[in-house]
């Protein structure tokens, strides 16, 4: 087999494996959220389907597929059908450039634990995630319903407002690492500060991390920024008119975006797959230890998401916009000035 064919086959195989793992993880993130929020609110969460309700995501999936798909008469059909597909496809696509670990070894065969390593990975990721606003905007407009339109306007305005702060918060990390390649950013975080503190960008850039986390919550429309689907005001926001599998796609897109946020946060601020070496494990498992640390950090991020959902109330819309433009943006700008000044003073 020629090398290019091997290359294409290997990437295609990796893509399929990553998407299957990602979709499973998304399904179980929903289960985790219901379970954890349930316990935080002093109830059990799903318990009926399988042990600990573990088969609940499967049951939900089957139910979504078997439900009647109601397409209202006055929707603009091409965009109405395209919108959820855009949302979910773009949400999945942002994982294409995320590195999960170093080399994966199976006997003599070894391959990087990443779909592809491009030197502008972070730009690709930001580009893909900012196109995601089209899914929301088109869904609301094409539904031809008042609630959908208002929900999508709110969502679009919120997403673009916080995108500026999100982009600015990443600049601090780029100043430190001097690279847009996610792999190099992670490798720049190996080692320790003062011999005991991991050399994570989180410590010098904790302001940037706060801005990133807040902006990312707003980007993914999660509590306390879930105004687009504020059910007491807007029924279900931009996906009011969606049912069955198309609704499930918006749902999947939202949770996949949570994973993307967690991945970027882990890679940029928390040292990616770096963690204590577990040398007591057998050699066969050794090459999966970085993957384990990566997954563990992602899990902590998801838990934070759920924790905050169980804790905070929702913002009012004017508060939301004021917070984005008047608080986060100046903080992000000040962080850039301070970081560049510090780097300029310390590097000869």
């Amino acid at each position: 087999m020629p090398t290019w064919a091997q290359f294409v086959l290997l990437s295609a195989a990796k893509s399929v494996v990553v998407i299957i793992i990602l979709l499973t993880a998304v399904a179980y993130a929903v289960w985790l959220e219901r379970k954890v929020v349930g316990r935080m609110q002093n109830r059990w969460g799903p318990t009926r389907v399988g042990p600990f309700g573990l088969l609940q995501p499967l049951a939900d999936g089957i139910k979504f597929i078997l439900k009647e798909d109601i397409i209202p008469t006055n929707v603009y059909k091409p965009l109405y059908i395209a919108a959820p597909m855009i949302s979910v496809a773009l949400a999945l696509m942002s994982i294409a450039v995320v590195p999960f670990g170093e080399q994966l070894r199976f006997g003599s065969f070894s391959t990087p634990a990443q779909i592809t390593d491009v030197n502008v990975a972070l730009l690709v990721l930001l580009g893909v995630t900012s196109v995601a606003v089209y899914g929301v905007a088109l869904a609301g407009w094409s539904s031809n319903s008042k609630y959908s339109l208002l929900g999508s306007l709110r969502a679009s305005a919120q997403m673009v407002s916080y995108e500026a702060s999100l982009g600015l918060s990443l600049i601090g990390v780029l100043l430190l690492s001097g690279s847009l390649s996610l792999r190099e950013i992670v490798n720049g975080q190996s080692g320790t500060y003062f011999g005991f503190l991991p050399r994570w960008n989180f410590f010098p850039q904790f302001i940037a991390f706060f801005v990133y986390l807040t902006a990312a919550f707003a980007e993914t429309n999660r509590i306390p920024f879930d105004l687009p689907e504020a059910e007491t005001e807007l029924v279900a926001g931009y996906h009011t008119e969606y049912s069955s599998m198309k609704f499930a796609m918006f749902f999947m897109a939202e949770y996949t975006n949570m994973f993307t946020v967690a991945c970027v946060g882990t890679l940029l601020f928390f040292g990616g797959w770096h963690g204590p070496a577990l040398t007591f494990l057998p050699m066969v498992v050794q090459s999966f230890v970085p993957l384990f640390w990566f997954a563990f950090k992602i899990f902590l991020f998801l838990f934070l998401y759920i924790w905050i959902r169980g804790t905070l109330p929702r913002f009012r819309y004017d508060q939301l916009m004021a917070f984005g433009w008047k608080v986060l943006l100046p903080i992000a700008l000040a962080n850039i000035v301070l970081t560049s000044l510090y780097i300029g003073l310390t590097t000869p």
């Binding site: 290359f7 294409v8 990437s11 295609a12 893509s15 592809t116």
Partner: peptide, 8 residues
């Protein structure tokens, strides 16, 4: 390196 992105 960009080809796998399109495959994905």
């Amino acid at each position: 390196n960009y080809i796998p992105i399109f495959l994905f």
